Amino acid sequence: MSIDPSSIPNFGGQPEPEPTGEPAGVVIPDQDLVKQLLEQMELKYVVDDEGDLAAPWEEFRTYFMFRGDEDQQIFAVRTFYDRPYTIDDKPQLHEAIDDWNRRTLWPKVYTHTHDDGSVRLVGEAQMLVGLGVGLEHFVSSTVSWVRASIEFDKWVTETLGLEKEVDANPEDGEDGEE
């Protein structure tokens, strides 16, 4: 899943240079830009009840959100991993995600404990975009964040020895042998 930034059309149909007076190639990203990027990446997405874009996978969903005031606006890519853990699992989870967070730039991962006592993992990367950002930087960062979210899911499954659960499921077409 890769995308050549030069193949992305001129989003918003704005003439060059952009009317905002920003240097060529600088955009103020919005949800339409992200939708077009997701379409270019051939990723399915939905818009949730709060108006955020979400790309669902089998074991997690990734949200693409804009938050904050106009010139201090932040673009966040936040992934909610669906595998539930228990409170007793938290020390092992913290050890694993501390290792991930030390070794990687993104997503930064943390635990979230729900009211029912279940613990889930959340990954997040953010970029300040309110004053504009280079289109190529925005595209390459977003693509990298999505890839890293997928890689984290694979990594945590392997690190915590959860692949046995996945491999043991005959519906997956796997026989569990390595």
Rank of each mutant, 00 (worst) to 15 (best):
P84G: 10
A76K: 07
F152A: 05
V109T: 15
K164V: 12
N101M: 02
D115G: 02
G130Y: 08
W100E: 12
V122P: 00
P107M: 11
D116A: 13
R78H: 10
G161H: 09
I150K: 15
K108E: 10
T142M: 06
P91F: 09
D89M: 05
R103V: 03
L93Q: 05
A125Y: 07
A96K: 12
A148G: 06
G117V: 06
P84H: 06
D89N: 15
K154A: 11
L131I: 03
E163L: 14
K164Q: 15
S141V: 12
Y85Q: 00
G130C: 12
D82Q: 14
F152M: 12
S140R: 14
L93V: 10
E158S: 11
V143C: 10
V143E: 09
D115M: 05
F138Q: 07
L160A: 01
T142R: 12
I97Q: 00
T111N: 04
E124C: 06
V139G: 05
H94C: 11
L162K: 01
E165S: 01
L131N: 11
T111R: 00
T86A: 06
L162P: 05
L121S: 07
G123P: 03
A76Y: 08
V166F: 10
R102M: 12
P107Q: 03
L128S: 13
D98Q: 08
Q92W: 01
V143N: 04
E136V: 15
R102S: 08
V77L: 13
V166I: 14
P107T: 11
D89C: 04
I97K: 01
S149L: 03
E165T: 07
G134K: 15
V122S: 04
L121W: 02
S118W: 00
R78A: 03
L162E: 08
L131F: 02
G161P: 08
V133R: 00
S144T: 15
R147Q: 07
L128D: 05
E124H: 04
